[in-house]
């Protein structure tokens, strides 16, 4: 088998096999946090940190982890990094910790993280696994930011809390609530798929 290279891994995670657009993973948090860019960014950074280091650790221990209990050990490793983030935010960024509330803890249940540990880190070298985790997280962040951009702009008339829409702009209540993320995510997947198909057609 050909050894995957850095660029190849990055393109896969960001584009051709993007965890949200193609694998439809990590949808719960996509729906939940994306009505506000600030929360989205911090949540996504937390996911990038966790996928990177859980991938790193799983890869480091891959020869030692018994096959039967590997998923339990992966969960332990993921939970470890998420709790580290939670404690660090509470100690040094209490305002952000307050704003995110329970969502930091819920990073543990983000399917992308365990997915990458199972599908990649378990059978690849340490450095490449770290890179795979980082780029998977970045692929997740990119899609979330697109969704959050439209939801915050139309739902609140702001971006990162700064007023963009003119005074008197009627905000779209549905953009604040979770269902709008379904519609927006659907549109994003549709657009990306069309672009991909067109590229494929041009190539053949």
């Amino acid at each position: 088998m050909k050894k995957p290279r850095l660029a190849e891994v990055a393109i896969k995670n960001l584009w051709t096999e993007n965890p949200i657009l193609i694998q439809i993973l990590g949808i719960c948090s996509t729906l939940a946090v994306t009505n506000n860019l600030t929360n989205t960014s911090i949540m996504a950074l937390g996911v990038i940190f966790t996928t990177s280091f859980s991938n790193f650790t799983v890869s480091l221990l891959k020869k030692l982890i018994p096959h039967q209990v590997r998923m339990i050990i992966q969960t332990l490793i993921i939970a470890f990094f998420v709790i580290i983030i939670n404690i660090t935010l509470k100690a040094f960024l209490p305002q952000i910790s307050r704003a995110l509330g329970p969502y930091v803890g819920l990073i543990i249940t983000n399917c992308i993280i365990m997915g990458r540990a199972e599908a990649f880190a378990r059978s690849n070298p340490v450095g490449l696994s770290l890179w795979d985790g980082f780029t998977s997280g970045a692929g997740y962040m990119a899609v979330l930011l697109i969704v959050a951009f439209f939801r915050e702009l139309l739902g609140f008339g702001t971006l990162y809390g700064f007023r963009i829409m003119p005074e008197g702009f009627v905000t779209w209540t549905i953009m604040v609530t979770a269902p709008s993320a379904f519609f927006l995510l659907g549109v994003v997947i549709w657009v990306m798929k069309s672009v991909k198909d067109r590229k494929r057609k041009e190539r053949t």
Binding site: P66, V69, I73, L76
Partner: peptide, 25 residues
């Protein structure tokens, strides 16, 4: 790494180390 004893010991030690680190932080 397939034996029962190894599995139990590994799980115990791994849990112990990760939780110890968390407790320290």
């Amino acid at each position: 790494t397939k034996g029962k004893v190894y599995t139990v010991v590994f799980t115990f030690v791994a849990s112990f180390i990760f939780i110890l680190l968390l407790a320290l932080v």
